[in-house]
């Protein structure tokens, strides 16, 4: 298959003695959206954060197992985490634009990865904002503060910012749960656009969202993957009782 996907093998994460993710093995296909669903505290966000080694930043968090991209296990100590994170973008629940202008937010990544020419940066900024469906709204005020944007616009800016470093994979941790329905719809539309180029892994609490945007869905419970199948099957024909209980709202 074309493009770059990612696969986790026996990935376990624990905070101190407390295991949060237990031996999870999942394959993520390129140019597809995979949704991770499950009740709060089931380990799906922790799992997601392990994929670009963000958990390295948390003291006493240990990640064991393998994460393969192409033929490289990125969960080994030899991996250059800095260049890895250029390949795997991330978007959080709360938009976190830097306290800089819109332009500088986008140019931040590329600039420190060696793009120096203003013309090239201009192109990257326009391209990224266009892909994030934000160009039309911001092209006349690129040098205004990013903090003046609305929450939904800020979130799209954060997506544009992660696209700007040309990643292969984008991780999204409940990217729309802090937004109003209109902004949420825009983000979902954007995700459907972006999957033509990127492998997208999205954690969501909103099951309708998972059903709308994703091709495959993994259901997490108590740190384990209960079921992983095409989204259609998960929502219409779940194999396990827990999955069906969760998606029909009987718990969680």
């Amino acid at each position: 298959m074309q493009g770059i996907g990612l696969s986790a093998k026996d990935l376990s994460v624990s905070y101190g003695d407390r295991p949060a993710v237990k031996k999870v093995s999942l394959d993520f296909a390129p140019k597809q959206v995979t949704a991770l669903i499950g009740p709060s505290g089931c380990g799906k966000s922790t799992f997601l954060r392990s994929l670009n080694r963000m958990n390295d930043l948390i003291p006493n968090c240990t990640v064991t197992g393998e994460i393969w991209i192409r033929d490289q296990n990125i969960n080994s100590p030899a991996t250059d985490v800095v260049s890895l994170r250029q390949k795997i973008g991330m978007v959080w629940q709360r938009p976190n634009p830097f306290h800089k202008s819109i332009y500088e937010n986008i140019a931040f990544g590329p600039r420190y990865h060696g793009v120096k020419k203003k013309k090239e940066l201009d192109e990257i900024v326009e391209e990224s904002l266009t892909k994030a469906a934000l160009w039309e709204e911001t092209k006349d005020r690129l040098h205004n503060s990013a903090l003046a944007l609305s929450g939904g616009q800020q979130q799209r800016l954060c997506i544009a910012r992660s696209i700007a470093v040309k990643p292969d994979i984008i991780l999204m941790d409940e990217p729309a749960s802090a937004l109003d329905p209109v902004s949420t719809a825009k983000i979902e539309e954007l995700i459907s656009e972006l999957k033509r180029e990127y492998c997208i892994i999205i954690v969501t609490h909103n099951m309708h969202q998972a059903a709308r945007v994703s091709e495959k869905t993994a259901f997490f419970l108590m740190g384990e993957v209960m079921e992983y199948d095409s989204t259609n099957n998960i929502f219409t024909n779940p194999q396990r009782a827990e999955t069906s209980d969760y998606i029909t709202g009987r718990f969680g």
Partner: peptide
């Protein structure tokens, strides 16, 4: 400083020094 800002910078592949110099100090 909000934790998200630093994480945002790290997630773009910045080193710790770049994050301190370009995000933490200016903010």
């Amino acid at each position: 400083l909000p934790k998200g800002l630093k994480e945002g910078s790290y997630a773009l592949g910045s080193t710790r020094w770049q994050t301190i110099y370009r995000i933490v100090l200016p903010t």
